[in-house]
């Protein structure tokens, strides 16, 4: 199987994963989602590889177990790449999508896990979509090199900038947002026993272990600078370099 063919298959499998996230299973939906590139032949190939299940006269399309495993890896790589570019390198917009798309087809599972660890096992991509969990997340691996660490791991009195908040509970995230606990904001850890107390935008806020575990911060944040995301402008230049780096991977 050639590289291009694999890339095409991957695109279909990814699309089927998105459909699964939205609870869609009809082949018509798939067609409308990829209006230009839809090809019956690819569906046949995927079916022959055992990656998809077709039923009801090929009107209903679903990933098989092995198809789902493959899609999982792809989505994971894609969304982690987005996180890496958005958080570490300060890229955004078109860069994000383009690089992530190239990235997902080329990297190995191990490298994906390393990036995940480096970023402190994020659970959502910059667009707020869930990143499938990997082995490294279950073990909550940490390394010296991790750029992003849980807020609870800071030393007392240490300040850091919030990188992202891993939280699927809408009510909780709205409450945190209302208190200005959001990405880009500088917080200081005041106390970790009997419960956690942080300082954020002039307010002292007490948090449970369960809540603070969701908040991840930059390990070596710059000292207090007014305005969020002030690091980003320095990072923009790195994006092109990174793009080249991924091209190397391709070869």
């Amino acid at each position: 199987m050639g590289v291009t063919q694999k890339v095409i298959h991957d695109e279909y499998i990814e699309q089927l994963w998105y459909m699964k996230e939205q609870g869609e299973i009809s082949i018509d939906f798939l067609k409308s989602a990829m209006p230009e590139s839809f090809d019956e032949k690819v569906i046949e190939e995927l079916f022959n590889f055992g990656l998809i299940d077709l039923s009801q006269n090929a009107l209903i399309i679903k990933l098989t177990e092995s198809g789902e495993a493959q899609a999982r890896q792809l989505i994971r790589a894609h969304r982690l790449a987005e996180r890496l570019i958005a958080d570490v390198l300060g890229g955004g917009g078109d860069d994000l999508e383009k690089i992530a798309c190239e990235f997902e087809h080329t990297v190995s599972g191990e490298l994906v896990n390393s990036i995940c660890t480096l970023l402190g096992h994020p659970k959502e991509c910059p667009h707020g979509m869930p990143i499938p969990e990997g082995e490294c997340c279950k073990l909550a691996l940490k390394t010296e090199l991790s750029l992003i660490v849980p807020l609870a791991d800071l030393k007392l009195g240490e300040s850091a900038r919030i990188a992202y908040i891993n939280c699927r509970n809408d009510q909780q995230i709205h409450k945190l947002e209302g208190l200005c606990i959001r990405p880009g904001v500088l917080v200081k850890l005041h106390q970790n026993y009997p419960t956690y107390v942080i300082e954020c935008e002039g307010a002292s806020i007490a948090l449970d272990k369960e809540v603070i575990a969701n908040i991840c911060v930059w390990k070596n944040s710059m000292p207090a600078v007014e305005g969020a995301n002030s690091k980003i402008s320095d990072k923009k230049n790195n994006v092109k370099g990174l793009s080249k780096f991924f091209h190397l991977f391709k070869k």
Partner: peptide, 11 residues
Amino acid sequence: SESSYIQVIPQ
């Protein structure tokens, strides 16, 4: 019982 405790503390 898994409520989330987020409490602003007055100075």
